[in-house]
């Protein structure tokens, strides 16, 4: 699944997964790391989910809390990666 993904669709899929992960629907701008909602197994699952669902590879240099901390930021990250 590459190129031209609609932002709403990506956000929707991420929101659904993160909601299941943290057992509550977070606001798309809520920092789920900061709130301690994501334990280490869940963090790994989130990475694997993003890679598997959107066909991208998350590299060490992508591991920036700014890319991962909220659903909206993660959506932006996925859109950049899938456009690249």
């Amino acid at each position: 699944m590459r190129n031209g993904l609609p932002a709403d669709e990506v956000r929707g899929q991420l929101l659904e997964f993160v909601t299941s992960l943290v057992d509550a629907e977070p606001d798309p701008d809520e920092d789920y790391f900061e709130r301690g909602l994501v334990n280490s197994l869940a963090a790994l699952e989130l990475v694997t989910f993003v890679e598997h669902r959107f066909g991208i590879t998350v590299r060490a240099e992508d591991l920036d809390l700014d890319n991962f901390r909220t659903v909206n930021r993660l959506t932006g990250f996925v859109l950049v990666k899938t456009a690249g």
Partner: peptide, 18 residues
């Protein structure tokens, strides 16, 4: 330093443990 600070446990150590 492996990965940025903030990801040491949730990603680096978690990957090793997995």
């Amino acid at each position: 330093l492996v990965a940025s600070p903030g990801f040491g446990l949730s990603h680096v150590i978690a990957t090793a443990l997995d």
